[in-house]
């Protein structure tokens, strides 16, 4: 949610080590990061402060995961973004998350998978809810980008975007048919 940014960040882990000189903090062991609805899990988090004072967090794990609720105009729809990869890089200044290696980004509505993107690298722009996926080679294996976008029309009533049903007009005169 957009309001997540105004929430404090809570980080939990088994161990912390910090270095005042290089301005880095390393959390290891069952790492959890929470900020509002944003939630990340991994094995190790390297947190650094850029010269401009913004935080950059590199979360690694098998797999490092991320999820966050998205604002949806329809209150009945609980829309979530889920991401997982070997490495997640959170950039506070750009408000982006970069997924590297075994990257997978999915969008769900009320728990139902709607869209999915996989690739070598995916950059997800949290602020604008946009993502850019790139292929590449990893371990000598060529990885292509695959994106699956769920069809908009759905049978179940949960979907809000039903197409408008056409009905015969009550005001217009019927067209004259040529014989």
């Amino acid at each position: 949610l957009q309001s997540d940014n105004s929430k404090p960040i809570e980080i939990a882990a088994d161990h912390f080590s910090g270095d005042q000189v290089s301005q880095t903090a390393v959390y290891t062991g069952r790492v959890e990061v929470h900020q509002g609805t944003l939630e990340m899990h991994g094995d190790r988090l390297d947190l650094q402060i850029t010269p401009k004072g913004y935080r950059v967090g590199v979360l690694t794990g098998k797999l490092a995961t991320f999820k966050q609720q998205r604002d949806n105009p329809n209150p009945k729809i609980s829309e979530w973004m889920h991401a997982e990869a070997d490495k997640l890089i959170y950039n506070e200044e750009k408000d982006t998350i970069t997924l590297i290696n075994n990257a997978r980004l999915t969008r769900t509505e009320n728990g139902v998978l709607k869209d999915e993107a996989t690739g070598q690298t995916i950059v997800y722009d949290i602020r604008n809810a946009r993502s850019v996926a790139e292929g590449g080679t990893a371990g000598g294996e060529r990885r292509r980008v695959t994106t699956v976008i769920a069809p908009r029309k759905q049978d179940n009533s949960s979907s809000s975007s039903d197409t408008t049903k056409l009905r015969s007009s009550t005001t217009l005169a019927p067209a004259n048919r040529t014989k």
Partner: peptide, 19 residues
Amino acid sequence: ANGTISLTGRVNTHIASRK
């Protein structure tokens, strides 16, 4: 001396929001 800190046990950090 060299500015390093190690904290053990379940560690919990609270980072205040900037906004």
